[in-house]
Amino acid sequence: MSHQAWHDIEGADPSILLIADHASAFVPEDIDLGIDRNLYDEHVALDKGVETLGEQLCQTLSCRAVFAAQSRLVVDLNRDEDDFLGLMPAVSDGYVIAGNTGLKAEEKEARLARFYYPYHQHIAEVIKRQRPTLIVSLHSFTPCLKSDLHCYRPWQVGLLYNNDDRATQIAIPLLKQAQLVVGENEPYSGRILNTTMNRHAEKNRIPYLLLEIRQDMLTEPKEIGRWCQILENVIKETVLSLKNRK
């Protein structure tokens, strides 16, 4: 069945490109993951709250965006091609994903060809047509992993990066001014997991903000609206600062 691996939002301001790798929980009808339907509403399937927040940011910033159009359980677009355990996980946060168990090499390659390669090729083409000043990669994380009930994630927002922290170091003090608990390379490190930004931002020497927002603060429309207002200001100030440094 035909299914495009992404959907775009067009915007008048070419200086900002927003990317959401885990915005959707959609699973095509011809792929059976063999899991309880309730899991499609959990973080193992998508980054909760990101699609709504991303759409609102695009509206307020008038920026372009590329949103993934299928679940990370179909294929995780923010994993390297050789990360066979992470690309199509057989187990995610303690949940067994039966439909990803025992996948043959040709089955994995078919999913990559159908979703992964077109998605990243499209982002590359968008950047080539109009190079942005800043890329914003939008994610959300859980207050605690269900597979590790002793974990402690106090950060309200985390900023991740690998080698290029130009935009991050501009944004951190701005987020702290908003009275937020900010993590740098938390709740995990961008030096370990940063595939989409490595590929499209760092490789092209484009500054970026990889934002991880704690999911329990993205459950209500009012909360999402507050985050949209905060991030709108931070992103605008970051772009202005980057342009002034040129």
Rank of each mutant, 00 (worst) to 15 (best):
M1D: 12
M1T: 14
Q4I: 12
W6D: 10
G11Q: 06
A12V: 08
P14R: 10
A20S: 15
A23G: 09
V27F: 02
P28R: 04
D32R: 03
G34N: 00
R37T: 13
D41E: 06
V44T: 05
V44I: 15
V44E: 00
L46F: 06
V50I: 09
E51H: 05
Q56N: 12
T60V: 14
R64D: 10
A69P: 05
Q70D: 03
R72A: 03
V74F: 14
D76I: 08
N78E: 09
D80G: 11
P89F: 02
S92G: 01
N100F: 06
E106P: 06
E107S: 11
K108H: 08
K108M: 15
K108T: 09
L112R: 15
A113P: 01
F115C: 14
Y116N: 05
Y117F: 15
P118W: 13
Q121T: 11
I123G: 03
I127Q: 02
R129N: 04
R129K: 12
R131G: 07
L134A: 06
S137Y: 11
C144T: 09
L145C: 01
D148W: 09
L149P: 13
H150K: 15
G158Q: 00
L159P: 00
L159W: 01
L160W: 06
D165G: 01
A167L: 07
Q169T: 12
Q169W: 10
A171R: 10
A171Y: 11
I172H: 04
L174G: 02
Q177E: 09
V182E: 05
P187M: 04
R191P: 02
I192Y: 07
N194C: 10
H200D: 10
H200N: 05
Y208G: 04
I213R: 00
R214D: 08
M217K: 00
P221I: 02
E223C: 05
Q229C: 06
I230D: 04
E232K: 13
V234W: 12
V234R: 09
K236E: 06
E237S: 12
T238H: 05
L240M: 07
